[in-house]
C-alpha cells in the first residue's frame, strides 16, 4: 500500500506552540494544502499578525512578513501593489483584525485589494491572556470582563463578514468553522476559492473561521467545541456572504 497521507509541502517540520485543542493547527494545515494544490508556494508571501499566530512564519514554508498589531492588510496592500504577480495572504485573529486593525481591514477590502485574509475568530484575545475581544459574546467571561461582557458598556460583538459584506466593492466573504470534520472540508473549499479568486486577480477574499480557545475559555478541548457550536455559531452563522459574481 502506498503513502496515503503526508504533510503539505507548504508546512515546515516545526512543532507548533499552539495549546492542546486549539484550532489554529487545523487551519494552518488547510491553508497549506490549498497552497500546495494551487502550486503557488514559491510565489506566496504570508503576513503574520500579532497574537497567537505571530510565529506562523515558523510553520508555513513560504516567504513571510511579520506585521504590527492589526496592520497586516496594509502590508499585504503594499506587497500586491508593487508585486501583483505574487500571492499574498494575511492570517489574523479577532483582536488583531476586528479591534486594532479595523481601519486597515475595511479599507483594504473596500479597495478590492487582490489578497486573501484568513480570519480566526475565537471570541477572545489568546496570546495576551484571555482579554475581551470585539467578538466576545454577551456575558462571556474574559480577564478584562470578569463578570462577563456587559453589552451596555461595550456594545454587541462585531460580525465581520456581515460588516464587510455591506461594501459595494466586489469581494469574496465567507464564514466557516472547523469544529467538526464535516465543517473542515467546507472550510477548505472556501479557503481554496479565496485563493483562486486572488490567483485570477478577481477580488479581495476573506474567510472567517469560527475557532476555539480552550485555554482562555477555561474549558476542555471537547467542551470548547460544544460551547462554540452552541454559543458562537448561532450568532456567527456559517456560509458565503458575498461572491464577486453577485
Amino acid at each position: 500500500m502506498g503513502k496515503t497521507f503526508s504533510k503539505p509541502e507548504a508546512l515546515t517540520d516545526a512543532h507548533t506552540h499552539y495549546c492542546p485543542g486549539c484550532t489554529h493547527g487545523i487551519v494552518h494545515r488547510l491553508v497549506a494544502e490549498v497552497i500546495d494544490e494551487l502550486g503557488i508556494r514559491e510565489n506566496t508571501v504570508g503576513i503574520a499578525p500579532v497574537g497567537c499566530a505571530v510565529m506562523a512564519y515558523n510553520y508555513f514554508d513560504c516567504d513571510f512578513q511579520e506585521a504590527a498589531h492589526g496592520r497586516a492588510p496594509a502590508m499585504a496592500t503594499g506587497i500586491k501593489r508593487v508585486r501583483p504577480d505574487l500571492m499574498a495572504f494575511t492570517y489574523q485573529g479577532d483582536g488583531d483584525l476586528a479591534s486594532i486593525g479595523m481601519g486597515e481591514i475595511v479599507h483594504a477590502a473596500n479597495r478590492g485589494e487582490k489578497f486573501t485574509t484568513i480570519f480566526i475568530n475565537n471570541a477572545i484575545y489568546g496570546m495576551t491572556g484571555g482579554q475581551m475581544a470585539p467578538t466576545t459574546m454577551p456575558g462571556q467571561r474574559a480577564t478584562t470582563a470578569p463578570a462577563g461582557r456587559d453589552v451596555e458598556a461595550t456594545g454587541m460583538p462585531i460580525r465581520m463578514c456581515e460588516l464587510l459584506s455591506t461594501l459595494a466593492t466586489p469581494g469574496y466573504i465567507s464564514r466557516q468553522t472547523v469544529l467538526k470534520p464535516k465543517y473542515v472540508n467546507k472550510a477548505k473549499k472556501a479557503i481554496k476559492k479565496a485563493f483562486e479568486y486572488q490567483k485570477e486577480n478577481r477580488c479581495y477574499s476573506f474567510v472567517e473561521i469560527v475557532s476555539t480557545c480552550p485555554t482562555n475559555w477555561g474549558m476542555t478541548p471537547l467542551d470548547s467545541l460544544k460551547w462554540a457550536e452552541d454559543t458562537l455559531l448561532p450568532y456567527y452563522p456559517l456560509g458565503e456572504f458575498k461572491t464577486p459574481e453577485e
Binding site: I47, A67, R71, G78
Partner: peptide
C-alpha cells in the same frame, strides 16, 4: 498609520 505599513510591505 496604514501608509507606514504599505511602505513596510512593499
Amino acid at each position: 498609520v496604514a501608509v507606514g505599513y504599505m511602505i513596510f510591505g512593499a
